[in-house]
């Protein structure tokens, strides 16, 4: 019996061709913008998930790349920091395969193709995976820095645990044959 390959933590886009697991989680953010790095930190803490069905990746949120990276996936998790005046650490969950993301929470840039743009473009190109689950994590500090704000740091274990459970459930569901 062969040992399944460990989940991969990709930071190098040149490796993107190797993406193939049916369940993929992308931790999105700028690693130098304090709370904005929370998506990446969650991805890093989930990288020990040892399942051939699950791929864990870090992303800068470039929409054109995301469309490419989630091709052929069955379930995609997108984890990103958001700002909507909710308590820091609060989790927003959206089923983006059904409805567009709310613009007020997921900001749209005039010059950058971000996650929300990628989802809408992929929807029109019929390239949206069957399930796209967006987890927005309420953050407060987006200034330059390498540390999370205390409230977000405190919420991190719970967020990682929630995402781990969700990934595991989806992996189990995929392993059950349809009858």
């Amino acid at each position: 019996m062969t040992t399944p390959p460990p989940s991969r933590l990709l930071t190098d886009v040149s490796q993107e061709c190797s993406i193939s697991p049916p369940i993929r989680l992308f931790g999105i953010g700028n690693p130098f913008r304090s709370d904005d790095r929370v998506g990446r930190l969650i991805a890093q803490q989930l990288s020990d998930l040892n399942s051939p069905s699950i791929g864990i990746y870090e992303s800068d949120g470039d929409g054109a790349k995301l469309i490419d990276q989630w091709q052929e996936a069955r379930v995609v998790f997108l984890v990103d920091a958001v700002s909507s005046r909710q308590p820091v650490g609060a989790l927003h969950r959206y089923e983006a395969h059904d409805l567009p993301l709310p613009n007020a929470i997921f900001g749209r840039s005039t010059h950058h193709w971000g996650m929300a743009d990628a989802i809408e473009l992929a929807r029109r190109l019929h390239k949206l995976p069957p399930r796209v689950l967006v987890y927005g994590i309420e953050a407060s500090n987006f200034s330059y820095g390498l540390t999370l704000s205390p409230a977000l740091q405190a919420a991190l274990p719970r967020l990682v645990s929630d995402l781990r459970a969700a990934l595991t459930i989806h992996a189990l569901a995929l392993s059950v044959p349809f009858t």
């Binding site: 054109a64 790349k65 490419d68 743009d117 809408e120 473009l121 029109r124 190109l125």
Partner: peptide
Amino acid sequence: AIEMAEIYPAIVERGLQMKK
């Protein structure tokens, strides 16, 4: 381009591949 993709999906897709 998102609106454009609705009518011209093949063109937008070509652009994405070229940019990539």
